[in-house]
Amino acid sequence: MAQEQGGRDQEQGAGARLARLLRRWWEEAGSASGGTRPTQQALAARLGVDQTTLSRYLNPKHTSTAPLRVVEALHAQLRAPAAELDRARALCRAALRENSGRRTVGGGGEPTAATDVTDGSGEPAGRREPAGSRATAAPAGPAAPHGPAGGHGSGAGRPRFRWHLHVLVWAAVVVAFAAGVLVHERFAVQDRKAATADGAAGGEGAVAASEVPHQWPLLVMGEQDQFTRARALQNLLNAHGYEVGADGFFGEDTRDAVMAFQRKRGLAPDGKVGKHTWPELVKEVKPGSGTFEVRAAQELLNNVGQGGTVVSGEFTAVTAEDLRFFQSTRDLPVTGRVDVDTWLALLVAQLPPAGAPAYQRPESPPPSGSAPASA
Score class of each variant (00 low, 15 high):
217 P>W: 12
364 S>P: 04
356 A>H: 06
365 P>N: 03
294 V>E: 07
15 G>V: 10
76 A>N: 06
352 P>S: 03
5 Q>D: 15
278 W>D: 07
322 D>F: 00
132 G>W: 02
173 V>I: 07
242 Y>A: 06
86 D>R: 11
93 R>A: 06
371 A>S: 13
30 G>Y: 00
356 A>M: 10
345 A>H: 15
54 L>T: 09
277 T>Q: 08
209 A>W: 13
131 A>E: 06
291 T>C: 11
368 S>L: 12
233 L>G: 04
136 T>K: 07
181 V>S: 01
350 Q>R: 09
105 V>N: 08
206 A>R: 12
303 N>Y: 06
75 H>F: 05
329 T>M: 02
85 L>P: 01
92 C>W: 05
259 M>P: 00
273 V>H: 02
235 N>R: 13
216 W>K: 07
270 D>S: 02
310 V>H: 09
238 N>R: 15
17 R>Y: 05
156 A>D: 11
73 A>M: 06
184 H>V: 14
191 D>T: 11
10 Q>P: 03
165 L>S: 10
43 L>P: 02
8 R>D: 12
138 A>N: 09
343 W>K: 13
309 T>P: 00
369 G>F: 03
240 H>Y: 07
15 G>L: 03
283 K>G: 14
148 P>C: 02
335 T>A: 01
164 H>L: 15
154 S>R: 13
272 K>D: 11
305 G>I: 10
80 A>E: 02
300 L>D: 09
218 L>M: 09
362 P>F: 00
325 F>I: 03
127 R>C: 13
89 R>L: 07
153 G>I: 05
116 D>F: 14
178 A>F: 05
280 E>F: 07
226 Q>F: 00
244 V>G: 02
116 D>G: 14
83 A>E: 09
94 A>Y: 02
213 P>Y: 06
107 G>H: 02
286 K>T: 13
250 F>P: 03
356 A>S: 13
141 G>P: 01
295 R>K: 15
13 G>C: 02
259 M>G: 05
120 G>F: 13
318 V>R: 11
77 Q>Y: 08
314 E>C: 00
197 A>E: 09
51 Q>R: 14
331 D>I: 04
366 P>W: 05
353 P>W: 03
189 V>Q: 13
232 A>W: 11
314 E>R: 11
44 A>G: 04
